[in-house]
Design a protein around this nucleic acid. Structure first.
Lengths: 115, 115
DNA sequence: CTAATATGCAACCTGGAGGTTGCTTAAGAT
DNA sequence: ATCTTAAGCAACCTCCAGGTTGCATATTAG
């Protein structure tokens, strides 16, 4: 299976774009950073220390949840959010694919020039 | 320098968010895919085959250029765009950092449970 | 020179992202 | 039972991303 170049780099765009978009915001990146240390956090906890409103933070969390990067679970009167590494792993392998394609391009150029 | 462990996961958000944002659009992901094969392409070339207008494509290319993912060079009457892997490599190492942090969290949890 | 091609520029439109405020409801704490 | 804290809901605002059209300008082809 080396011919027809089904690299897989195409087609999965529809799946990956929302994840990139979710990470394309400073506030959300900061939330991801906080949650990726492992400890589950409530909305108020995450909103504390931010200049933004609790509601603003809630909206950002919903965006992250929509992309699958984060998952919210009820715990009594508070909503605890926890990190899910899967979507970010997915775009990581996507980036690897693009890098690979680029490296092959450089290799082709080199062999052409060396000719 | 040489502060504590200072993984560096913080602070660089301001730099990375625009790159993620630039990749957070299906059309732009498709442009990146086309350009990462190595061959430089003119705007009209890139616009051909798309349902969008040439101007729309131009705007997307400017966004990618703003994030440093792509670079446009004049060549006669046409504008050739070429891929630049650097910004995507940068977010790749950023994702590695987050993964690492997450793995450490899992390790801590495990050693706690193992008591 | 003239026609065709490639791009640039500017105005314009529309929807939704990102943020706020105000009020309501659920759940713990005392 | 009541006070307090956490969160949900909804309306509203502003601004810009994403897209279009129309016209102007450079460059190459014949």
């Amino acid at each position: 299976m080396s011919h027809k170049g089904h690299s897989g780099i195409a087609g999965k765009r529809r799946a990956h774009a929302p994840v990139f978009a979710a990470l394309g915001d400073e506030t959300r990146l900061s939330l991801v950073a906080k949650l990726s240390v492992g400890r589950r956090c409530s909305i108020s906890q995450l909103a504390g220390g931010s200049k933004l409103t609790r509601q603003a933070i809630t909206k950002h969390l919903r965006v992250l949840e929509g992309a699958g990067i984060v998952r919210g679970v009820r715990a009594g009167r508070e909503m605890l959010f926890e990190f899910d590494p899967q979507p970010m792993e997915a775009i990581q392998t996507y980036l690897d694919l693009v890098s690979e394609q680029w490296d092959q391009a450089l290799a082709r150029l080199k062999s052409f020039v060396e000719d």
